[in-house]
Design a protein around this nucleic acid. Structure first.
Lengths: 116, 116
DNA sequence: CTTATAAATGAACAGGTGTTCATATGTTTC
DNA sequence: GAAACATATGAACACCTGTTCATTTATAAG
């Protein structure tokens, strides 16, 4: 079985070594990928976009997205686990809100790329 | 089959209507989710991170990530399709580079969230 | 033209993900 | 306590995604 990597004659060992040393820790890159994975679903993006205007209960979100309540709940659970949203109970309703404004900033940067 | 949405008594119709009207077009949110989906993979994140220091050939990337050439090539194809990287041939090698600096900016915002 | 190397491509396979359905939990009202 | 409503949860299912293997294309050198 071959190594499936380039031979010494191909790779620019110097450059590669420098890049590797300057790259963030791999754990951090994994965390970053995990964050984007959380943002990489249209339902979750729509939820976060809706919440950027203020807190909403599950019921509101379900109606705003025209989606079933369980689907929304499942996604909210994931978003809460990723600390992107926080929840607060008031009577029968549970209100969700963005946990901080980082998401909004990331969205803005994302739109900038799309609109290029 | 029930509607699986809240009844009129629950939803704050006013608020929901306002949120829906202020939300970006759904197509745009789909595009945004698509962008994050592209960033939501550790291999692609590592590739983009490596390229943030300058252009590299497939072989270099393969070595820098300690991954097989085909795996890297497949991901580069996707990244190119998403216009996140561009490629340039020089002899036997193909060099890849970030297509613009939006990715770097998005990464920065992402790290800010992680480091909170 | 033949050989060697870098990169790309397609098929196949395993693992992960989002929705739905059924059901449970929590809260209010009667 | 029972009924009604909002939300959460677990199982099942179909779909998507990333890697590997085998092969092909592209370029350079002998």
């Amino acid at each position: 079985m071959t190594q499936d990597v380039c031979q010494d004659s191909c790779a620019h060992k110097e450059t590669v070594a420098q890049v590797v040393s300057r790259m963030p820790a791999i754990d951090k890159l994994y965390d970053l990928a995990e964050l984007f994975k959380m943002l990489g679903d249209s339902t979750r993006v729509r939820i976060l976009s809706a919440l950027s205007f203020g807190e909403l209960c599950v019921c509101d979100l379900s109606e705003a997205l025209s989606m079933g309540q369980t689907a929304v709940s499942h996604q909210l659970r994931l978003l809460r686990g990723a600390r992107l949203v926080r929840s607060r109970r008031e009577g029968k309703n549970v209100y969700y809100a963005l946990d901080d404004d980082h998401v909004t900033q990331i969205f803005t940067k994302g739109f900038e790329h799309i609109d290029e």
